[in-house]
Design a protein around this nucleic acid. Structure first.
Length: 462
RNA sequence: GCUCCCUUCGUCUAGAGGCCUAGGACACGGCCCUCUCAAGGCUGUAACACGGGUUCGAAUCCCGUAGGGAGCGCCA
């Protein structure tokens, strides 16, 4: 358990960082930190169509926001660079050559349209859609002929027949798959770039990755990658396929579930530590229930407790960790989190009543003197206290100032009211709301003058 | 269609044949504390998908069924 694990996060810069990806990144990060190993960031941008620089920048920004720091990566370098796949063409080229020379790969001249048709036919015939092997047996002459006619081939891996690929999945246990169930797959596209099955596996091996944690959706594809690695004589990493992260309805997380990217949660005002605390419990159980700071998470991370079943993302639970996180923020941190940037006393006052920054708005309005309309029940409580009560209170505040204990003492002595009968009408007159933050600091912030005016406004009515 | 994977309270999960009249956390309800809300303390409701085996004994092992998911791409 103490052998240092080299793990990685290998996103493709084709969109915002999804929660599911963030979770596997977190698990990988924790594993490396737990064992004193290394955590690598690798950018898988072989899909030139969809990859964008801004996504890469965003992705890095989100990981930094989460404080998931990497030891090797595109920005910090490292011994196995470059860490961006689009810059690793030369490395792949040599490997393609080796594969071809060994007879483990062959050029394929089939056109996408033809393959599409073949797939359809196979499906209709009730057979799994697989590459029929058209180009596998092409003679050298035939290959030359096609090449001469200007066709640019892809490179296909020649999957050996009648063999069984076995591996021990870190979370699913022993796996075996017949090679006959796997069609020859493309390792190099027509444009010369490497395909996922190839470069993803190869880079893991080349970068010394020992443990690959990824989503369940890759489980069935792992044998292909193992085949490539074996053919190239590269070391197989251990693979762990964690159950997918799904929405509340059990369907794969998508836009219709609301926020699904790290960015969206950050923009809504969720704290990184809150997100981390929720994610670390999705499809994983540590050895403690309590809120954890990122630096102490590795100790409590238990790879053997990674789950196979899909986990539902439940915002109610995220909210809980958000509250826990807020409770641990320093006053200045609360201030910056709430935006306003202003008074630390305001931040301190609101921190227990706000889970997202937007929740602060009504209270900031109350401080400004912009009270919410009174409800039926609130009016009844005010009427019950009576205008005399508020006249007394307004008079008392000129003596006590914005000092609640003193004010309460005076008003209590003069009206005989105490407890809820005393505080509730005061709170209502002052804030317009029956519940909210502590009244004493609230009063102090409202100030004696504004408070007196609010009390007086209720002293008029009959 | 074929192959593979998954299935414990509403949710996240503990559980690796007897320790389980199934434990914890979140959510929900009640009580306490309290000017209110939040927090905190106590407490309650609530689950082994189904059907067969194996066994003295099964949430745990085996086989089926159902439901869900993934893969079979010049996406990753």
């Amino acid at each position: 358990m103490t052998t240092p694990a080299v793990t990685r996060f290998a996103p493709s810069p084709t969109g915002a960082v999804h929660l599911g990806n963030a979770r596997t990144a977190l698990f990988s990060y924790l594993w490396a930190r737990k064992t004193g190993g290394r955590f690598i960031l690798r950018i898988e941008d072989t899909d030139v169509e969809r990859s964008q620089h801004r996504y890469r920048d965003e992705l890095i920004a989100e990981l930094q926001w989460l404080h998931l720091t990497w030891d090797e990566g595109p920005d910090v370098g490292g011994p196995a660079g470059p860490y961006v796949q689009s810059e690793r063409g030369a490395i792949y080229a040599a490997l393609f050559e080796q594969l071809e020379a060994q007879g483990d790969a062959y050029p394929c001249y089939c056109r996408p349209e033809d393959l599409e048709i073949a797939r359809k036919l196979q499906r209709m015939a009730g057979r799994p859609p697989r590459y029929p092997g058209t180009c596998r047996a092409l003679s050298t002459a035939a290959r030359r002929e096609r090449a001469a006619s200007g066709l640019r081939p892809t490179l296909r891996f020649a999957v050996p027949s009648d063999r069984v690929v076995e591996f021990a999945d870190l979370v699913h246990g022993p796996q075996r798959l017949q090679t006959n169930d796997i069609g020859d797959f493309i390792v190099r596209r027509e444009d010369g770039t490497a395909s996922f099955f190839f470069c993803n596996a190869v880079d893991d091996a080349l970068m010394g990755v020992t443990h690959v944690l990824r989503g369940d959706d890759h489980l069935a594809n792992t044998p292909r990658q193992l085949l490539v690695l074996d053919a190239l004589g590269l070391r197989r990493p251990d693979y762990g396929h964690v159950g997918l992260l799904v929405g509340a309805d059990g369907a794969p997380l998508s836009k219709r579930h609301g926020s699904t990217s790290v960015q969206e949660f950050r923009q809504r005002g969720f704290l990184a530590a809150a997100l981390l605390n929720h994610l670390v419990r999705l499809g994983h159980t540590g050895d403690v229930d309590r809120w954890l700071d990122l630096p102490e998470m590795p100790v409590h991370f238990r790879p053997e407790h990674l789950g196979k079943a899909p986990a539902r993302f439940d915002e109610a639970q995220l909210l809980h960790w958000q509250k826990e996180t807020i409770a641990r923020l320093s006053p200045t941190e609360v201030g910056t989190w709430l935006g306003a940037g202003g008074d630390p006393r305001v931040a301190e006052l609101l921190r227990h009543n706000v889970v997202l920054p937007k929740d602060a708005a009504p209270w900031l309005a109350v401080l400004r003197g912009d009270l919410p309309p009174l409800g039926e029940q609130e009016r009844r409580i005010l009427a019950d206290a009576g205008s005399g009560f508020f006249a007394t209170a307004a008079a008392a505040i000129t003596e006590s100032g914005a000092d609640l204990p003193r004010l309460a003492k005076l008003v209590s002595a003069r009206t005989g009211r105490r407890g809820a009968a005393l505080y509730l009408p005061l709170r209502l007159a002052l804030t317009g709301c029956a519940h909210g933050p502590e009244l004493a600091p609230l009063l102090a912030l409202i100030g004696a003058d504004a408070a007196r005016r609010r009390l007086e406004s209720h002293a008029q009515d009959p």
